[in-house]
Amino acid sequence: MADNSKVPAVQNGQNVVSLGALDQYVSITIGNQLFGIKVLLVHDVLGPQRITRIPLSPKEVAGSLNLRGRIVTAIDLRSRLNMPPRPKGEEGMSVVVEQSGELYSLMVDAVGEVLSLDDTNFESHPPTMAQTIREVSSGIYRLDDTLLVVLDCDSLLNFGRQDAA
């Protein structure tokens, strides 16, 4: 059911010669900000899905969905990053990542191309950046026209654990 809306995770049209200095990222946008997730972490890219709400779950959890017979927990990144909810009527997309054997679907506004980024353009984030973003990112790439915030999936998914303990 999701298949028609699926976009290949890796759009590797151009010949990328990996020199070790180049890292590939799936670019995503939330609001006006460009983010990136390491392409090797990404399982799937999904269009809008039917999501089952989970009562009593942390607010970041949008619900769960069925991805080819596996149950995937959907995380609303806007909520996770303390951003305002997506305007009504706008359909988002999702990036499915795996963390310690579990699949998570990160709900974002849009998923863009896979970018090969040069290490030399990478730097750690300025200390003035909002804490919520700093917590979940490992740094920033300077692109020609914009900046790309690299999301760190582990810390992105590290929430609500305190309750579990």
């Binding site: 989970i54 009562p55 009593l56 779950s57 942390p58 959890v61 769960s64 069925n66 017979g69 149950i71 927990t73 310690s100 579990e102 998570y104 998914l157 929430f159 609500g160 654990r161 309750d163 579990a164």
Partner: peptide, 16 residues
């Protein structure tokens, strides 16, 4: 259920 939901004692699991 996913680890982040495991603390909700009202659920014993989920299914499709």
């Amino acid at each position: 259920v996913a680890p982040i939901l495991r603390h909700i004692s009202l659920f014993s699991g989920n299914t499709i």
